[in-house]
């Protein structure tokens, strides 16, 4: 490894990949590798966060991320509280700050927040004593997703450095692409992105990637192809003609996958729209590591919670 892991994280919050140094990223990934082993034990639980309380404040629909955090918290012996928008004070018009302050009055140690608006976790971090973990803020960042993607690539390839990673899809509305470009470029991977030009945000290349329009150009010779979901619910107005044409131009099909390296990994952050951005033969094929990503998600979230609680990078004794 060329990057030496940091001894600890500087911030008590994880608001995004942007504030992290390569050394901190390395520390989280190394710690996550140790965490993976816990899931293989007969008793999948360690006492690292015993007596700590975690609030999962999910104000946007989520299945995978919410469960993944909850499993991670439970494996570390934390007490968890789950909050979702429907049926809550938020539906009655309470502001985010008031909701968070009320929850904090119950003295939790962590607030894991998923929110439809960019910067919502940052707003909480300014006023709360708890550690705030961003579990996805609108179209901004999704740091634990990028960390689990990086762990998945690293476990398969041994390193992130020099890996050619092509990310394809709705770049405009994707927090996953922002966090992934920031992380992978910082760790020495070569990142290419592609999507309909009407869904490429201005200045995308400044995040640390090469921008392509044609998918074929982006995936040629790639080590990893990461497909993004087309976020139909976030299209304020139609930015491309039809889903049918999108599949025609931007779906990962077995034919297109042949343009990449022979052993190229196929990734997707989920939930997949089969037949829209990915062909089932690829999603379920031998190169797909989509379910490994989910498994690694738990390990990465355990590592983040453990490190933010003040743990060191060493393996956990039980």
């Amino acid at each position: 490894m060329s990057v030496k892991p940091a001894a600890s994280l500087r911030s008590r919050h994880l608001l995004g990949i942007d504030p992290l140094s390569p050394e901190e990223i390395q520390l989280i990934l190394d710690t996550a590798e140790h965490m993976r082993e816990i899931a293989k034990r007969p008793i999948k639980k360690v006492p690292a966060l015993r007596g700590k309380t975690v609030v999962n404040l999910f104000l946007e629909p989520s299945t995978r991320t919410r469960f993944s955090f909850e499993v991670a918290e439970k494996r570390l012996s934390a007490d968890t509280l789950n909050f979702s928008a429907s049926g809550s004070s938020v539906e009655k018009g309470e502001t985010l700050l008031d909701t968070a302050r009320n929850l904090e009055a119950m003295e939790p140690d962590f607030i894991v927040i998923r929110h439809p608006n960019p910067g919502a976790p940052h707003m909480l971090a300014k006023v709360l004593k708890s550690s705030v973990i961003n579990a996805g803020d609108g179209t901004h960042e999704h740091p634990t997703q990028a960390l689990l993607d990086a762990l998945t690539i690293r476990l398969r390839r041994g390193t992130l450095e020099g890996q050619v990673v092509a990310i394809v899809g709705d770049l405009q509305h994707s927090r996953v692409v922002r966090s992934n470009v920031l992380l992978l470029s910082r760790m020495g991977a070569k990142v290419r992105v592609a999507g309909p030009p009407s869904l490429i945000p201005v200045g995308m290349e400044k995040l640390g990637c090469e921008v392509y329009h044609r998918m074929e150009d982006a995936i040629a010779g790639a080590d990893v192809v990461m497909m993004l979901r087309i976020q139909l619910e976030r299209q304020e107005r139609m930015n491309f003609p039809t889903v049918r044409e999108y599949f025609d131009l931007f779906a990962l099909t077995p034919e297109r996958l042949k343009l990449a390296k022979k052993d190229c990994l196929v990734m997707h952050p989920g939930p997949m729209n089969r037949g829209v951005e990915i062909d089932s033969r690829v999603a379920d094929g031998p190169q797909s590591v989509i379910l490994e990503q989910v498994t690694n998600g738990v390990a990465v979230r355990m590592a983040v919670l453990y490190l933010l609680a003040g743990g060191s990078g060493e393996p956990i004794a039980d």
Binding site: G119, D137, T139, H140, P201, V202, G203, M204, K206, L207
Partner: peptide, 11 residues
């Protein structure tokens, strides 16, 4: 612009 893109805010 590039800042809005980094912050994920609509431009």
């Amino acid at each position: 612009g590039a800042v809005a893109t980094r912050l994920g805010l609509a431009g």
